[in-house]
Nucleic acid binder design. Structure first.
Length: 142
DNA sequence: GCCAACGTTGGC
DNA sequence: GCCAACGTTGGC
């Protein structure tokens, strides 16, 4: 019997001076690896192919800039000895028409309780469907 | 198993 | 440059 599996939505933080959305567009697909935080790993392990993820730039930018798709994984991080350390492959899907800034997100009542605001250090953040929809609206994608 | 000290992340 | 929040480490 076919199993009904809903896609989930995520937000992946990256420091753009280290690896940016532009780098992902150039690479097309990259392995999102090297995550060691326990909570972030729980989220990584919950990902599945076809899930979507916003790429968020930390540092001086502090904005969501593009949409990526999970295309493989989770699988054990090949650079780590511990099989609990997992990675996924993501593919650049499309840039946001307009970047959505952290300031906008903080100011918008739709994002009350959002882990991005609640747990500021978390680098892999689940995005509830209604918040995802709102983010796309703010990004002029809807 | 507790907790103080320290390190890291990321916003301000 | 600073600091808040949180995780990790190691002594006890």
């Amino acid at each position: 019997m076919p199993q009904r599996t809903e896609n989930n939505f995520w937000l992946l933080k990256t420091e753009p001076t280290e690896y940016s959305w532009h780098d992902l567009v150039h690479d097309k697909v990259t392995s999102w690896s090297g995550i060691s935080n326990a909570t972030a790993l729980i989220h990584l392990r919950a990902m599945k192919p076809r899930d979507l993820a916003l790429i968020y730039h930390t540092g001086s930018e502090r904005a969501c800039v593009g949409i990526a798709e999970i295309v493989k994984g989770p699988y054990p991080d090949p650079r780590a000895g511990n099989p609990k350390l997992v990675a996924v492959d993501i593919m650049a899907k499309q840039p946001l028409e307009v970047a959505v800034t952290l300031q906008q997100i903080k100011a918008d009542p739709a994002f009350v309780g959002f882990d991005l605001l609640r747990i500021s250090r978390l680098s892999v953040v689940p995005v509830p469907a209604e918040m995802w929809k709102r983010l796309l609206t703010l990004a002029k994608m809807a």
